[in-house]
Amino acid sequence: MWWQVIIAIVTLGCAVEAIRAKKLLVSAMWLAGTSALVALLLYILGAPEIAVIELSVGAGLVTVLFVFAINLTGEAAPPFRSLIPKPLAWVVIAITTGTLIWLNLPMLGASLPDVQGLTFQAAFWENRQVDGWLQIVLIFTGALGLLGLLADEKPHQDDEEVSA
């Protein structure tokens, strides 16, 4: 029990450090740590498949992408002044988390029932095929969008003629 509490506290600590860190690269590393610990919590919850995917994609691929993007854009972080007044932000956060706590009150203290029925693989490949197709479409959309966004701008044809 106590080690689950420790994992939860360390997860939230990593998340806070990811927001507090001044360097973007350090923030990305703390985010990777948060992802890894969330994957551990998913494993404890009885979802090892999702935990593995979260660990490889959330802590691996996304971190590499962040490092890539930070290298391309530079570490130029603006001064830490908020877009909206901080008291207003805290009020919004208090209302949001308060609502979530109120909605989750019946769940606090509930014990987890034993897992029964189909395995995850059987359920996903037999009953949730639409999810699979949706994920394939999403991956192709993401790859095409990334190629389009990272492509260098070609000079306009008229500009080429003028320069020639």
Partner: peptide, 19 residues
């Protein structure tokens, strides 16, 4: 319970992300 711990983590992550 484990459910309570996970709910607290969820609340924390959502709150920190919103911040």
């Amino acid at each position: 319970s484990l459910a309570s711990i996970i709910i607290l983590v969820i609340l924390g992550l959502v709150g920190i992300g919103l911040y």
